[in-house]
Design a protein around this nucleic acid. Structure first.
Lengths: 332, 332
DNA sequence: GTTGGCACTCGGTAGCATCGAGTGCCAACC
DNA sequence: GGTTGGCACTCGATGCTACCGAGTGCCAAC
């Protein structure tokens, strides 16, 4: 692909992203980066169409980029920080003010990202399966109800209520807590071995019940997903059917999780149109970034917009928020 | 309003809910509950239009119910349990299987309600301001980090992290926990008085920090809102602008909370069209029910659909889910 | 009071001409 | 030989007109 063709393709993508109208050779010829006549542009466009980068809705219309065309455009983007200083400030301020439970923070992050990009945003919370236990505590609620509070290495605080056959005294809870802490803290949640007998029946009964609850966590708690800015979907498409299809997908959290994972697994951070296999999202692109706690990747954030999206801006926003979120979670 | 006019109005509402088309006198005359000729129906319709129950989009079109028309219809509904046995079973099974944290349960409830009614569903979580403290516990995470776990009377488990200037030993945490429990448990969160000095400096320092975090909870944690079935909004309207407006409102949680509160405060459980003052929801109706924990109303659930919604079914579903949710939360 | 009859209204649809942005192709040009 | 202006052609969008039919209001008869 020679430079002139690339320039024309870029011009088509950029103009189409702005106008949502098929682009004719005349417009492109007027573009500052393309200093040739409409006729020459037309010749090049025919080639670009043959190569699959452009597509003509009908004979007498202009051209529209294909998924392949967007892909070329995205790959040719320089990762220049194209975010305005107002936006950068907004992100900084957000994370400076952030506080409270991790769930609320992730939830608010999804809204931040939606606000920055004007597309729907998705934040996938840390899954329990890779986390290890940082602290465990039994708290008596009522005579026969005990709350198990577990702090995980990924920052999540999980809790689970136990219902006992017999009453448990505070000292017994304290003993069981110590026993559990001694044997379980530091172990990954996914393969938590039952703590050995302590010799005391009551302690062992409590410990076993708590252990069972803890070991069940990875299965019991599906990945937490926060979706922000769903209303933006309705702005991106004017076919109400498309909007509905996209919203349905966004409600199916496991699909969203799978989609983000998939993109990251393939080593990408942008998935365009049909590249990801989710059929109702054929007209959508996804920009993704992972985030980390203590250097370990635990979750992902992303924005979902129409294929004709502002890639540069979206990529910059997602990357920045991902970095800042990692920092905020690691510090806290 | 004589019985025949009421029957005609009901027929118009029911037919319009099904077809979304303006209803002509001919259709109504064919309705089994209306045994008169189209001409008679027309005469009655003129009266109903004068009285503000019906509205004619243009001269040569059929009639459509106004908000006032829907209101009459809703008020004349008998509260007969119009839910199919499949749906009732689905609700029972849902609450039988329900487990885990209250937040997850409320979240899943919003999806249940959306699934039952085919409209967007909203669940407003218990607010902290009216709750009292049922249990408090300090848990050491790291040498200088302490987690405050508070169990509230409404079933919510709140947690908050303290960062200390000095290291705190486990015994000190235990002392502070006992001190806090003795003085704060049972008090409403809204006016938590600082526990009196215990004589021990470390204990008091911990207790004060924890007390501050607890007292800040009602302000720090805005009402939790769970919205399910947003995709249904796109099914209810075919103007994409309307869809967008409704979705925007659903994202503004404080508006949703205010709306539900408002409806319940006025002693209603249905708000139709412009009855609630939220302008972008002028084409929407809301069906609401409160739910309780231990006999005290702590939150609300609702569905939001187009004014031409299946009121009877929606009201039955919301009422049933509200009752069952109250039971589930009170038992657990 | 109810009903059948009838002239009238008016949105929706179909058919048709027109317009114009955009194309492909070709011959001329540098 | 690549580039360009010219030109005939395509085809969706727009606007106009005619027509259809569901539905109305009114009136006279029952």
């Amino acid at each position: 692909m020679d430079e002139r063709k690339a320039a024309i393709l870029r011009a088509v993508v950029e103009t189409y992203v702005e106008t949502a109208q098929p682009i004719g050779s005349g417009h492109i010829a007027r573009h500052p980066d393309v200093a040739v006549s409409p006729a020459t542009v037309r010749n090049e466009m025919v080639a670009l169409e043959h190569e699959g980068f452009l597509y003509q809705p009908h004979t007498s219309a202009g051209r529209v980029p294909t998924d392949k065309g967007y892909r070329f455009y995205v790959d040719s983007l320089t990762p220049a920080g194209s975010l305005g200083s107002i936006e950068r400030q907004r992100v900084s301020r957000f994370f400076a003010d952030a506080h409270g439970a991790i769930e609320r923070m992730l939830h608010d992050t999804s809204r931040l990202l939606a606000g920055l990009t004007d597309y729907a945003a998705v934040v996938v919370g840390p899954g329990s399966e890779s986390a290890s236990l940082r602290s465990v505590q039994l708290v008596g609620l009522a005579p026969r109800h005990v709350l198990v509070v577990a702090v995980l290495s990924n920052g999540v605080v999980e809790r689970s209520t136990l219902e006992l056959a017999d009453e448990a005294l505070d000292e017994q809870l304290a003993l069981a807590t110590a026993h559990l802490s001694a044997h379980l803290v530091g172990s990954p949640l996914a393969d938590l071995v039952e703590p050995p007998s302590s010799g005391d029946t009551v302690t062992d009964g409590l410990a076993t019940a708590a252990w069972r609850a803890l070991a069940a966590l990875p299965r019991a708690e599906p990945d937490t997903v926060f979706v922000g800015g769903t209303a933006r979907v309705a702005e991106s498409f004017d076919a109400v059917d498309t909007v509905r299809g996209v919203l349905v997908i966004l409600e199916q959290q496991y699909v969203v999780v799978g989609l983000l994972r998939d993109v990251l697994d393939r080593g990408l951070n942008v998935s365009i149109g049909t590249e990801h296999g989710v059929e109702p999202l054929a007209e959508c692109s996804v920009v993704v970034a992972p985030y980390e706690v203590d250097g370990e990747s635990v979750g992902a954030i992303g924005v979902l917009g129409p294929t004709r999206m502002h890639y540069q801006q979206a990529m910059a926003a997602v990357a920045l928020v991902g970095r800042q979120l990692s920092r905020a979670l690691t510090e806290g």
